[in-house]
């Protein structure tokens, strides 16, 4: 939102078709993080796992731009690797949750009857748990590691997708164009994929965008608790956890990973607001109001 947007005159004029400011800033931040994650996957200034006891707790400077940790490992390199881990985990988790949730939602909404009742009963029971709590319980089952997190968070978040997709399918199947497709002799399956699913994309993408934020946050929280990606592999969360005992010696160790998580979340939140303003009909007309 620039200052010029705020004057009544500029609001009266038809807006130029630029994306809203929050989308631009959010998109820029998310783009940067994905870029860093891609670079971090193939190249880092130092080996993120290499111990070097001569540079323990070295403050940020020419040699180590963001300093070195309690084992003398380069913080910048570890943050970059952590970015790729976080991005990779969130892509896998959101994909998993969307695929599982959409399948359940479509099946429940399309078949209705007992299938719907049973599926939604299970779904509601899962929604009765706060997300992170369910993930903690599931982690106890699947084990605390990278793929355990994907599975636990994916299962924990898929009920929200299922609920939204089912609602959309139920309201869609009463509409004329679905009826027309059937009358034309198209099979249920064809109608489903050709006409129903494409109309679920808008609500799913609104949810999926904010889900990226939930996953980044949950993943770093779980790693912080020692239930996520196990050390020595760096993630933003477990870097914060291992920095905690050295707070008075090397405060910067507790600062940089936190900045990374916060900036990532800020970017996703801004982008999420923009996506919601764009797709959520209830919010339409309030565009640019954030």
């Amino acid at each position: 939102m620039t200052q010029a947007d705020l004057s009544p005159a500029s609001q009266a004029r038809p807006r130029p078709q630029l994306p809203p400011t929050n989308a631009l800033i959010g998109g820029f931040i998310v783009g940067t993080i994905v870029l860093v994650a891609l670079i971090g996957a193939v190249w880092t200034p130092y080996d993120p796992l290499k111990l070097d006891f001569t540079s323990r707790f070295q403050s940020p400077g020419a040699e180590h731009w963001l300093g070195a940790d309690e084992f003398g490992r380069d913080v910048l390199s570890r943050l970059m690797t952590g970015a790729s881990t976080s991005v990779w985990i969130s892509i896998l988790t959101v994909t998993f949750a969307v695929l599982v949730g959409t399948t359940i939602g479509v099946v429940a909404g399309f078949l209705r009857g007992w299938t719907d009742r049973v599926l939604m009963a299970v779904n509601n029971a899962m929604l009765a748990f706060p997300g992170l709590l369910l993930a903690l319980g599931l982690l106890a089952v699947v084990g605390a590691n990278q793929y355990g997190i994907v599975l636990a968070l994916g299962v924990a978040y898929s009920p929200s997708v299922a609920r939204i997709v089912r609602g959309t399918v139920l309201s869609l199947r009463e509409r004329e164009f679905i009826e027309s497709s059937r009358v034309l002799g198209n099979s249920e399956l064809y109608t489903m994929f050709r006409h129903v699913l494409p109309n679920c994309i808008a609500p799913i993408s609104v949810l999926a965008t904010s889900m990226f934020g939930w996953v980044i946050l949950a993943e770093s929280a779980l790693s912080f608790l020692g239930l996520g990606v196990p050390p020595p592999a760096p993630t933003w969360g477990n870097m914060l956890a291992s920095a905690r005992p050295f707070m008075d010696q090397a405060a910067f160790l507790s600062i940089f990973p936190g900045i990374c998580i916060s900036i990532a979340l800020l970017g996703i939140n801004l982008l999420g607001d923009a996506v919601r303003d764009r797709f959520d009909p209830r919010m339409r007309g309030m565009r640019g109001s954030h």
Binding site: M1, S262, L265
Partner: peptide
């Protein structure tokens, strides 16, 4: 869309984006 609104909504969006465990660590620090 006034200054007060931009300040409040900006602060709010910033605060939601800071994970509690880091905010806690910063306070502790």
């Amino acid at each position: 869309n006034g200054v007060t609104d931009l300040f409040l909504i900006g602060t709010a969006t910033l605060l939601v984006s800071i994970p509690t465990f880091w905010l806690g660590l910063l306070m502790l620090l």
